[in-house]
Design a protein around this nucleic acid. Sequence first.
DNA 1: ATAGTGCATGAAGTG
DNA 2: ACTTCATGCACTATT
Length: 911
Amino acid sequence: MAGMAAAAARCMNAACGAPAPGVGEWRKGWPLRSGGFAVLCDKCGLAFEQLVFCDIFHQKESGWRDCSFCGKRLHCGCVASKNSFDLLDSGGVQCVNCMKNPGPQPVSCQVAPKLFLPPPNNQRLFGKSDELLPGRPLESPSLMLDSRSDDIAIITKSNHPFMVKNLEIGQSSNILRQKEIENGARQIKWEQPTLSIGDMGRMPFLIRPQSALESPQSQCTRRDDNRDPTADSTTSESISEAGLSMSLGIANNGNKMEATSTMERPMVSPTTPFSEGRELATTLSPFQHAQRARHFLTRPPRVAEGAAFDPMRDGFPHLRVARPPAEGRGRNQLLPRYWPRITDQELQQISGDSNSTIVPLFEKVLSASDAGRIGRLVLPKACAEAYFPPISQPEGRPLTIQDAKGKEWHFQFRFWPNNNSRMYVLEGVTPCIQSLQLQAGDTVTFSRIEPGGKLVMGFRKATNTVSLPDSQISAIATGSLLGDSFFSNTNENLSIADRFGGRPDEGSFQFLHKRSRSIGSKSRRLLMDNEEALELKLSWEEAQELLRPAPSAKPTVVMIEDYEFEEYDEPPVFAKRSIFTSRSTGEQDQWIQCDDCSKWRRLPLNVIIASKWRCADNTWDPKSCSCSAPEELAHKELQSILQQYEEIRRRKSNYFLKQSIPEMDASSLDALATAAVFGEVGNQGAASVATTTKHPRHRPGCTCIVCIQPPSGKGPKHNPACTCNVCMTVRRRFKTLMMRKKQRQSEREEAEASKRIAWVGRDEPEGSNLSRSPQTVDTARDCDVIMFDKADANKGHIDLNFHPASREEEQQHGGQPRVSMVSLLEVANRPLESYMKQNGLVSLAAEQGSSSGTATVPSQPAPMESEERPSDEGRAVAVEQEREPVDNMAVDEAACENQGNAASASDIAAT
DNA sequence: ATAGTGCATGAAGTG
DNA sequence: ACTTCATGCACTATT
C-alpha cells in the first residue's frame, strides 16, 4: 500500500494526474475486494472511508459521492455511513436503496465510468486508460506487485497503474495478450480464454449484479495490439472479464516501494505468473477455481517443483505469495489457506547453501489449542494425507521434522477417528512451540527438501493485528495490503519470514476472522494485539477518570473503612475526559473541551459524553453551541482550573504510585489486566509473594488461603494482613453484613419495645427455672426462636452470629439459652467491633460504642489475634478446604477470621 | 492435584 | 447435508 503510494506519484486517473498526497495518507489504507479503497479516516482515526483511487485525491475531503444509480448524494466519509453505500466495481458508489432494489442501469452507465480490466489469470492491472485504448501500445510496466498474494498490479513507467475508463459498449476483446514491449523493456503476454457466463462465478473479482458492467450490453474492450482491431468487434468477451474490481497491488513485504528504483527493475519475466496463469487455469480443479473466486485469490506462482516463478529473479525477493501446494496425494483439495506463503529467501534460508530444493508443502496458523500446552497440533486433514507419510493405525508413526536452524524435532504423527473421518494431529509439539516461542496466530510452514524428502518446518510470527470490525478484517484478509507502519512488527523475536519483511499473512487473518465469531471472551483476549496492549497501558487512575457510571445505573452505597463506595450493578461507560468544578455555593459544574476549537464549555453535571464533542453538540447552552462563541470562563479562571486539575491529577498519580506495588513487572500488569478482564480489579497493592495462580480468580502473588496452601492443606493459613481480592471482599461483605444485621436488630429492638409496652401488666408464667424478668423471658423466647432458626438455617455452615461466649453461657445454664436482646445485639456487634479494632479502625467502633451504650451485658474480651488455631489441624484444614468457591466462602472466611479465631475448630465444625 | 489421552461436540465452511 | 477442525470434557495416569 505504502509502496503503491510511492510508486504512483500521481493520481492513477489519467484524466486527473494530480500529484499524490503525502505517503502517510496512503499508508493507512487498503484495497477492497470489491474494488475501491478503504482509508482510515484522518479525522477520527477509527472509521474508514471507501474511496476509489481518484477519490483519495479529490473527493476525500468532501466525502460526498453520488449514487451511480439514483444519483442520490451519499456521504462516504465515515464509518457511520459506510453501510449506507456500496462501492461499485466499476467505480462510483451505490446507495443502499439501489442495492436493495437493483435497477438495470446506473444513472450514467452507457459507458462504464471507470473500468478496470482484469489482467489475465486474475491478476489486476492498473494503468492509464489510454494505454489500453486501441492504437496505443502498452507502456512498459515497471513493477508488478503482489496484492495480498492475490493481486498483481503493474505500474507503468509513468507510474500510472493501468486503469481503463470510459470504454464504450461494443468494444470487446476476448483475448488480451501480453505483447512484446519495445524499447528494451520486457514484454508482458497474457491471453485469456473466452469465458462463458458460467465462468463468471469463478472469476476472482466481485461482480455485482447491479453493476452496469454486467448488463448484457455492457461489454468492454481490451486491446491487443498485435491483433487486428477489427477482431475486437467480432469476438464477444465475457462480461465477467469486464466486470472487474480494481485493487491496489503492493509488495507484500510491507516495505515501501521505491518508485525510482522499481521503475528500472525488469518487471515480469516471460515465465511469470502471467504465462503460468494459463497453466493453472487449466490445471486447477473446479474446487480451486471456486476457492480462488471465493477468496479472491489469484493464481500464485509456483516454486520448487514449479520453479518458474522466481521472485528473486523477478525482482520480488520478499514476495510472500501463496504457493499452490506441491504435488502430493490430493493436493488439489488443499484449501488456499494452507497454501504455503513462504518467500524465496525463507526457502533459501532453509535450504542453506546446499543445492537441495525446498518444496513448500503447506502451512498452518496455530490455533489456541495448537499452541497450548496440550502439545497437539491439529493438522489439516488434506495436508496430512497429502504430504505426510500414510498411516493406517490411530497410533500413527513418529515423524522427524527439521526446523530452519537444522534442529530436528520428533513428533508423533497420528490420527483420531472422527465422524467417519480422521483427525490428524502432530503430538509432542510443545517443546518445539516453546522453543520457537510460537503463539496462537503464528504460522508454521511445512516444506520438503528434495532430494531426500526430508520434512522441514519454518514458522512465521504473526505480525501485529488490529482489532477491526469483521468487514475490515475481511477486507484485509481477502485482498488488501497494509503498510508496514500500520502493521509494525514489534516482536523482536522475529522469524525468518518476518525478518524478510513481515506482513500479516492471510492465514493469520483467517485465524482471527474465522474464530472471531465463535470464540468466547477468553479466546477473544488472544486477539488482543500489542497495539491494544499499548493502549491498555493507560494508568488505572487515568482509566478511572474516563470511567463513568452508566447513566441509568443506580448505586448501592457501601461503607468501607469510613469511605462511602458506590457499587453499581451495571458496567461503567467510557466518557470523554471532563473537568468537574465546584462553586462556592456548592453547585457543581462539568466542563468539557470542544474537539474543534478547544474551548471549554459548561455542561450539566450528569451528562456523559462518550467520544467526540464539539460546541455544536452543546444542546444545553444555546449561547455556547458554536465554536465562535466566547468561552464562558475567563482565561485566568480557566488556567487556574486547569492547573488545579493537573495538580489533583499529579497528586492522585503520586498517591497511586505510592500505593501500588513498587515494581509491578509485566507479568503483574498482565495479571492485573487479567483481573480487570474478569472484573477483579482492585487492590493492586498486594505484595507479590509466591507467584501462584491456584485459584482461577486470583492473580499471581495472592496470599489468600486458597493460593498459598499446598494441595495437602498444610502450610500457612490466612495472613491477617492479606489484601487479596478475596480477603478484601470478605471484609467488605462481612462489614456490610454486620451493618445490616445491626440495623435489623435495631428494628427488632424497636418492635420489641413496642411489644413490651403492650405487655405491661401481663403476668408472665414462670416457664423455666431461670430467674429473670418477664421482659427478659419474652425477649429470650423471641431470641430463642431467632437463634434456633438461624442454627437451623445454617446447618452445615458457619454461623456468623455465633459467639462462643453465648454457647458457654447456654451450657452453663443447663443447655437453656439465656440471651437477652441486648446481649444479642452485643453479640451481633462484637465481631465487627473486634474486626475494626484488629484492623486499626476506629470510626465505626466509636459509632457502635455510642449506639450500644445501652448494653447491660459486659462485652466479652475480644479474642486475641495470636490465639492459637485449633489443635485439630486436619479438621481445620478440612474446613478451610471446604470453602470453595471463594465467593461463597467469603463470608464464612470472614466470620472465622474476624471472630478472632475464638471459636475453636471443633466449634466451627460443629456449627 | 495435575498432566496426559482420546473422543465428542459444535461452529464454520463447503457442495 | 456433509466435512473439517478447534476445543471441551471425561477418563486415566502420574506426581
